[in-house]
Design a protein around this nucleic acid. Sequence first.
DNA 1: ATTAGGG
DNA 2: CCCTAAT
Length: 642
Amino acid sequence: MEKVVEAEGSDEGKFEETGLETSNFVLSSPKNVTDPVVYKLVRVDGNGRLVPATDDELMEVEGLLENEKRETHIVADTGQALGCISNEVSPSGMPQLESSEGLSQSENTEVDTEKLSAYLEETVPSGAKSSSDDHVTQSGRVGECLKPLDGPLEGGSSTSTGCISSKPDFSKLKGEICLDNLSIKELHEVFKATFGRDTTVKDKLWLKRRIAMGLTNSCDVSATTFVIKDNKLVKKDNEDGFNNVNLGAGKEHLAVAVEYNEDLLNNLSSQIDEHQTTSEVRLGNNVVENNFASEDLAADQRAAKRVRKPTKRYIEELSEAESKEYSGRSIASTKSIGFRPLSSKAHARPARNVSLKGRTVITRLDSLGGFGIQVPYVYRIRRSRPRKNVTALLIINSEILELNITCELNVLLLLALTRLLLEGCSLHALKFHPSGMGMTATFIKKGFDVHGSQMDNGSMNKVLEAKSTPEQAPEQFVAESKKEMTPTDMGQNMGLKYVDPSGDTSDDNVVTVPTAKGGIRRKHHRAWTLSEVMKLVEGVSKYGAGRWSEIKRLAFASYSYRTSVDLKDKWRNLLKASFAQTPTDKGANSRKHPSMPIPASILLRVRELAEMQAQASLPNLSTGKLSACGGGSVNETRPGYL
DNA sequence: ATTAGGG
DNA sequence: CCCTAAT
């Protein structure tokens, strides 16, 4: 475990995982924070229970799980963090924390862990200017929230070899600091003084850079020597020391902003009361970093600085919201976004405004078991069909990562994660692996067992897959010009729109297609899976073609993204397909290229149903068969219409 | 709000 | 898939 981590190594292959010393939960993002992260897969059932996913989704996941075993990539271990929360939770009826143990144990090499941690930390530029003052004041707050856990925590995270003193020695931050002369141990101390937490990273260079970044509030610490004075990095080849990107200050807290849609809300019912609510959830790291999380205005103001590039969509929302009256109704909700079992500690605070890049987001701060959560009020601005894709902001250590969360399921997953953390469960694994253009991260949570929210299939594993794309391949991004976008906005949003490169399988696709009048519209595409088709067929057979809404309700309850119109369209296509190439009855579907190999059997069934429906609707022929719903072996190939 | 059809 | 007209 004495391995030195090279923080800057190559990018892709280097994604490792780690148990964050402070037990923070961090969703890492690729090197470039700008990269959109797309969460894929997820599923939740009704009643707020976190169900892995629909059959299909699960299937997809299974593959991941298996891969998991083979690849030694990464495994995140959030074990310790849980401890804290659990204490608070269990009393309130929450599941006991039996998690941590197994998790941390997962056969991850410590090296990996460390690397990841390094990676993660590296990834998250710390623009934060953490003055000792901050820490001092914060420590107080932290204490409040985590009191019960204090002890266990500090001692618990034995994983972090880096920990040294439990109290930062701020004196180390005074005057001129010459990081180059410090030993690793000293660097650790400085690190702690700077960031208020320990680190396990043993890479000197990394530590120095990290500290330098923290102290200078800059992200651009490319110097080779590190002498810091007055919050500025004194480079040898001093040229200015400030051409940094300034990705933002503030930090050390994880936040997730999500926009909920109806389904989500239903599932999380009592958790959020309004539908179409966007919320930003901030999960303060339970340890020292909690500071900002529970901070109030200070944090918000900081947010103004630290924020960057709101997602294009986000902007749209905002602008639309601004122009349109945003109904105060959504604001009315004062209910705490509660993962309800969370004890009485959760209380909502008054709403406040957080300005993001000039825009102001109305939010309210909820506190969940010591975590601070910013819940932005949202506006309801959905043109045509219900929002399927949602954007979310994932704020990690001051960085706001724009997430293009596609489909509420993903959001649910995200929430699930959030919730898991809140509830003290630990992430079983977090793995990154290169995939096509970007990276794919898989989070696996085991043994989710929360009172009031069991997985349907016993201890099904929850898997989360996050995808992100590296900055390269500009063509992959579609910059949309929006009428109301200011030039600035434009620039800021460039490259945020991610278009699935490899036409990735079941992944969500949001393609923008130019429309006649110069406008543009988004086009989602979700390949129909076999099971979906089957359900559809089944539904049609049961309720009859045309009763789409019924079918939707009854047979597609779990597939929230399929609308009745979708069903109808699909059915239409199925019919076309089934009648299109039957004659030869080669059995196999002479599917041209890379389409879906719809099993002949299904096609056949479709045909049968089609005929049945046809005849049923044509009372003309009184020749039996009408009521024959059992439909089994009707083989006549009657060129139906429809 | 749902359906059917066209694009 | 999206959009729209017709119910």
